[in-house]
């Protein structure tokens, strides 16, 4: 546990997020009521997912430039953490929608786009782990991962803004207008995004190290 300072930071920021997120000041809005606090928990899932998917993409490109087992594992495990965060984002969003829009799911461009993006990334996980040959699985996985990112970004961030949507941030406006009216939420929101992203990085770091140790053990047994 050397260089664990950022893990301590993760814990501190997450505790801060939970306490301030639940007890801090928020604007009094109709319909939303106290659920506006979900902003500190639902939205950071998507921020964190996007950042971790970007890391996955970078590692896939690096793999294709200079193949190594480490880069392949980094790309795959990052994508896995990203998918978990995305699924949590979908689940929290669905619950939030039930009590503000009145339905668990609605055929909304942003919701459907996010769901399709998740499916595209699930396909990456399946593809990467269904090819027995290690190098082939890594190469094909890396190429597909680049496609997945290129498909997911428009689905998540571009297409939903071209149409009207129940979800905030649609109709050509950046997604931030919605809480511009409550600047005092920012001292909690930005640390929350940072904290949840760091947690995703931490989980990814542990899974990557586990995969690399497994590989080393396997090599030792062969030798």
């Amino acid at each position: 546990m050397k260089n664990a300072w950022w893990k301590v930071l993760t814990v501190v920021l997450l505790v801060y997020t939970v306490v301030m997120g639940l007890l801090g000041p928020v604007p009094r809005l109709a319909i939303l009521n106290e659920t506006i606090r979900n902003l500190y928990f639902h939205v950071p899932m998507w921020f964190g997912m996007t950042i971790i998917f970007t890391a996955s993409l970078v590692n896939s490109i690096r793999y294709l430039l200079r193949p190594s087992y480490r880069l392949d594992v980094l790309a795959y495990e990052s994508a896995r953490t990203g998918v978990v965060m995305g699924l949590l984002g979908l689940a929290t969003g669905s619950l939030w929608a039930r009590y503000t829009w009145g339905t668990w799911w609605t055929p909304d461009p942003r919701l459907n786009g996010a769901a399709v993006a998740m499916l595209i990334y699930c396909a990456y996980l399946v593809l990467r782990s269904s090819i027995a040959d290690e190098q082939q699985s890594a190469r094909i996985g890396a190429v597909y991962n680049i496609f997945a990112f290129c498909a997911a970004i428009p689905l998540l961030f571009i297409l939903p803004r071209l149409t009207d949507s129940l979800h905030p941030g649609a109709g050509g406006n950046p997604g931030f207008n919605y809480y511009d009216q409550a600047k005092f939420m920012r001292p909690v929101f930005y640390p929350a995004v940072f904290a949840w992203t760091l947690l995703g990085v931490w989980i990814t770091e542990v899974t990557v190290r586990l995969a690399l140790v497994k590989q080393k053990l396997y090599e030792k047994q062969l030798a």
Binding site: V206, L210, V213
Partner: peptide, 9 residues
């Protein structure tokens, strides 16, 4: 998570 981290270490 911390304990898993240590076990991997």
């Amino acid at each position: 998570l911390f304990s898993i981290d240590r076990k991997v270490g």
